[in-house]
Write a protein that binds this DNA or RNA. Sequence first.
DNA 1: CATCACCTACCGATCTACAGGTAGGCGGGT
DNA 2: ACCCGCCTACCTGTAGATCGGTAGGTGATG
Lengths: 190, 190
Amino acid sequence: MARTRSEERRAEILRAALEVIAERGYRGATLGSVAERVGLTQQGLLHYFPTKEALLVAVLEERDRWDTSGGRDREGWRLDLLDSLVEYNAMRPGIVQTFSALLGESVTDGHPAREFFTERYAQVRANMADVLRLEYGERLPGGLTPERAAPLLTAVMDGLQYQWLLDPAAVDMPGAFRDFLRLLAGPAEA
Amino acid sequence: MARTRSEERRAEILRAALEVIAERGYRGATLGSVAERVGLTQQGLLHYFPTKEALLVAVLEERDRWDTSGGRDREGWRLDLLDSLVEYNAMRPGIVQTFSALLGESVTDGHPAREFFTERYAQVRANMADVLRLEYGERLPGGLTPERAAPLLTAVMDGLQYQWLLDPAAVDMPGAFRDFLRLLAGPAEA
DNA sequence: CATCACCTACCGATCTACAGGTAGGCGGGT
DNA sequence: ACCCGCCTACCTGTAGATCGGTAGGTGATG
C-alpha cells in the first residue's frame, strides 16, 4: 500500500528509460537524458539505479513481469488473445520500438540484454507451441507440428514489427498477422 | 583493370567495418577499432572515409550492390533461390549479424540507416510479391494475394534470423523457412 | 636529367564533447 | 538525530573530428 515516493520515482524513471531507449537504443541512451526527463540530474538517477546496466536490467524485468501477467492464461497466451496482442502493440509504437531496438542490439557481442532475449525466445517458442497444441492438437491444419510452427509465429510477429516501425503506412501489421494465422489454420474446409 | 591500391584499401576497410558492426552495432563501433583491423590509425581511416557516417553509407551501398547482382534474376529473386539464399545466410552469421544489428538500430530516431532500410523493405516486399505472382498468379494456394503474402515472407526471414542469431542450436533456420514456404504453397493437393 | 609542383597516403598531436561513475555534502521529513 | 533523496563538484575514459605535417611518387619542364 501507499507506494512509497521512492517506488513511484523508480517507476517514473523506468518509463522514461523506456522512452529514451526507444529513441536511441541502449547504447545510444544516456543516463543524463533519462534523468532529465524525470527532472533529476544524472547522479540523482544513479541514486536509484547504481549503473546504466542495472537500469536496463530493471527495464527488462519489468517487461517480463508485464507479459507474465496480462494477456496470459496461467502458462501462456490464448490464441485469440495473440491477435489482440498484436493490435495492442500496433497502438503502442513506443514499447514496440524499445524492444525492437533492444533485440537488434542484443545480437551483438557481449550485450547485456543478450541472455535475456535468448531465454525469452526459448520461452516464447515453448508457449506458442503449447497454445497451438491446445488449439489444434499434434498437427495443425496447415500440416505443421506445434513445435515447427512456433518459431514461425514468433518470427512473423517480430519481423512485421520492424517493417511496421520503419514505415507504418506500408504495412498493416494486425491484418498481416491475421493472414498468417489463417495460413496456419490451413484450408478452411469450406 | 588493375584495381588501384586505393580501391583495395577501401574494400579492406569495408570488410573490417562489416565485422566490427556485427560485433558492436553501428553506434558501438569505433573508427579506431575498424582502423586497427586493417593496420591503420583512426586518422588514416578518415582519409578514405571522411566521417563515420560516410563509412556506414559505403557499407550499405555495397550491400545494395551485392544483392542487386547475385541471386537475382533481372527484376527479382526466383522463388527456388530464396530457399538457397536462406541457406546461404545460415552459413554467414557475420553478415546476417551485421544487418540484423543495423536493422534493429535503424528504428531509432534519426538513425543514418533508417531511410536505407525503409526503402529497402519497400523494394523487397515488391520483389517478393513479383516472385510470388510469377509462381502462383493472383492468388496463392494458401489463399493470399502476392501483396499480402510478401510482408509475411519478409517478416519470417528477418524474424528467424534473430532467433537463430540468439541461439543457433535452437532454431533450424532453413528448415523453418521451408516450412513457411510450404504453408504458402498451401494444401499439397495430394 | 634534374628540379619544381603537386598529389596520394598516411600519422601525431590535439580539440571538443560527452559519458559513466565516485565522493561528499546538504536539506527536510520522521 | 538520523537517514533518505538528491545535488555539486569532479575524475577518467573515449569517441569523432581537425590540423598540420611527412614521405613517397608522378609528371611536366627547363
